[in-house]
């Protein structure tokens, strides 16, 4: 048994349909159950598109690493890579996770003719913050330039009637069906799905380069990693638009001594340090990110969009290397 995941989002009417002293129609319950299935069954964008510009040497395999918090329902990840060959006959080989068998794609050398490469990775369901990896190898002729990378969780056709997927059996909500108390069915099934909902905007920012091409500096003052702070907003939370927490991580290492990473939004900065001389995902801190205002045509509260700035510096060592950044929402429901 499983619950179908609708392609289009239901918008059940509740203002006039659920009122004290009046019966609630089966159609209303079906709309709510379908809405829960829609949220639990649709995947999230765990790696929003990020620019790279990294060039892979011919014959070399470079690994991209991302720190993500996937949805528990995910069974497939879809990696999409925009890459160009720098010589006619250039190819890209892709594997996910790192070390798995590779699939080969022929690439164009012409900037206006590139076609994104789509690679599907079947995964077992898992939860919690974790590292996922992608191998890219330049084969055929010459080098390959990676322009941009992304990954999304594929939508499920149906989700299970269990306590992992929290699917709701819509047949049990049809008009004239009896109300009864059992898992994943009838009205308690809708309530359980709501209590265990995962509708997160999981990632606001992901960036990765192979460790062999890390960004590095010897500066003892904070230097910005990106050309500009990235513009972001968290999903709507409440009417006063209180900020929502996202956690920033840096994939970072020190060459002697300690190194610092800092992430800044309008609400303030968080920072942390490490003395590790091998790469580690450093929990930089919990960021408060401004929330959307859905009454504005662009969703921006009071005309001001929030930004995230990522910086690194040397503490007492000689050099800081950074090869990854993630800003993710780790806790449900949103």
């Amino acid at each position: 048994m499983s619950a179908n995941v609708p392609h289009l989002r239901p918008v059940p009417e509740i203002d006039t349909a659920i009122r004290a002293g009046e019966p609630v129609r089966g159609d209303t319950w079906m709309g709510l159950g379908g809405l829960a299935n829609w949220m639990n069954g649709h995947g999230s964008m765990i790696v929003p598109w990020h620019f790279s510009g990294h060039t892979i040497s011919n014959g070399a395999t470079d690994t991209y690493r991302y720190n993500v918090s996937p949805k528990a329902q995910t069974r497939m990840r879809v990696w999409v890579v925009l890459a160009r060959a720098n010589s006619v006959g250039g190819q890209l080989e892709i594997a996910a996770p790192s070390g798995a068998s590779r699939t080969t794609y022929r690439l164009s050398t012409v900037r206006d003719r590139v076609v994104p490469v789509v690679f599907r990775e079947l995964v077992t369901t898992s939860t919690g913050t974790q590292e996922i990896t992608l191998d890219l190898k330049a084969s055929g002729t010459g080098t390959v330039t990676v322009d941009a990378v992304s990954c999304y969780e594929q939508t499920r056709a149906s989700i299970g009637l269990d306590t992992t997927d929290w699917g709701v059996d819509l047949e049990s909500l049809r008009p004239r069906q009896p109300i009864f108390d059992a898992a994943n069915v009838s009205h308690p099934g809708v309530c359980d799905a709501y209590d265990n909902l995962d509708a997160r905007r999981t990632s606001l920012l992901q960036w990765s380069v192979p460790t062999g091409d890390s960004a590095h500096t010897t500066s003892a003052s904070y230097l910005a990693l990106f050309e500009t702070p990235l513009r972001v907003l968290a999903p709507i939370r409440n009417v006063s638009l209180s900020p929502m927490d996202y956690v920033a991580y840096a994939y970072i290492k020190a060459t002697g001594g300690s190194v610092f990473a800092q992430a800044t939004t309008a609400a303030g900065a968080v920072s942390n340090s490490t003395s590790s001389t091998s790469y580690t995902w450093l929990n930089v801190g919990t960021l408060s990110v401004a929330c959307e205002d859905l009454s504005a045509s662009d969703g921006v509260p009071a005309g001001s969009v929030d930004t995230i700035k990522i910086e690194v510096k040397v503490g007492t060592g000689t050099r800081v290397d950074i090869a990854g950044v993630s800003v993710i929402r780790e806790t449900k429901p949103q």
């Binding site: 709510l32 598109w49 990294h54 909902l197 920012l205 590095h216 500096t217 939370r237 959307e292 859905l294």
Partner: peptide, 30 residues
Amino acid sequence: VGNGLLHYADGAGQMRISACYQSGLLTGGG
């Protein structure tokens, strides 16, 4: 349940593109 499901669905849109090239202040990295 009703209000909450609708609220969370309103916030279920995803950050699809968050792409920025590097500052040039650091060496390497693309």
